[in-house]
Design a protein around this nucleic acid. Structure first.
Lengths: 152, 152
DNA sequence: GGAGTTATCTACAACGCTTGTTGAAAAACA
DNA sequence: TGTTTTTCAACAAGCGTTGTAGATAACTCC
């Protein structure tokens, strides 16, 4: 995601108006690595602007996603999460206990679909969700392995 | 997923009662590869039992998922999809136009998380969603490639 | 800097998917 | 068949999200 100042420019240059609410949201997202939900963004923004409405947050997040400045994700936690990191190609780690989401910065160019298995689909991208336990939700001991198998 | 007869057994042996509605749902799911939503299952079941309620469908799907006979998936199409294929380890192809979902039967054992990139997560599984266009939604020409890169 | 134009704001209501509640009905077991 | 217990259908409500309204603020052009 660009800086709040650059986003101000970008919004203006694409015919969008720049409001205090929007700049507040830019600031909230800046450097956020928690993949907040709209509600979470709203909660933080509210600390600075008590009257900001959830609808405004949704609208601005939608605009940012349309401009390619953030990603909207559905990782199965029940609500859309937003990711300001659009520069590093990455996938996601999702805690199956608390729903915490973190970026896993890595490309997997070796991901080859076996011939014929694509069933006629014209595949454009692949998203990987790694499920497990975040540091806070882990019991005492800790091991590490990645059996890339079936879904949820 | 087991056969309707085996599911009947399984339900009884786990203290669940077997009703006509449930057996109807077993039959609807049997061999379904379209990853139907609860609504879709309900629509098909309704053709056989006009009065079957959506709630009953949800409840039965939930039971089947609990018994490990089906998988419930969230692939970002706005509603939970259900997959009776729990025997083959597989991932999913999702059409970004129509939301169609198909199984991609393949394991990717080469999916290694770079050291340190897991941020302390204890990773247990990986789900891959391949996004693209299904045969029905494709324009005339057709190419094939899999740049496994960033998310949605 | 001010008036006009246009987008955005808040507040509110409604949406789609899913789940809780209820009394009635049906399955299991004797 | 009678008794117990689960499940049923119908209804309403919950959640995250989106539509609508008039009021307000940002931008443009003078």
């Amino acid at each position: 995601m660009k800086t709040p100042e650059e986003l101000t420019e970008l919004f203006r240059s694409t015919g969008r108006k720049v409001t205090a609410q929007r700049q507040c949201i830019f600031r909230v997202l800046q450097g956020d690595v928690t993949h907040p939900s709209a509600e979470a963004v709203h909660a933080v923004a509210s600390r600075e602007m008590e009257t900001i409405s959830l609808k405004t947050v949704y609208q601005t997040l939608y605009d940012l996603a349309e401009l390619g400045e953030i990603l909207s994700l559905d990782v199965g936690t029940g609500m859309t999460r937003f990711d300001p990191n659009v520069d590093d190609p990455h996938h996601h780690l999702v805690c199956r206990e608390c729903g915490r989401v973190r970026d896993l910065v890595a490309a997997f160019p070796e991901l080859q679909i076996p011939k014929g298995a694509e069933l006629g689909f014209q595949v454009g991208s692949a998203e990987i969700v790694f499920r497990g336990l975040c540091p806070e939700c882990q019991p005492a001991t800790r091991t590490r392995r990645v059996p890339a198998r079936a879904a949820k």
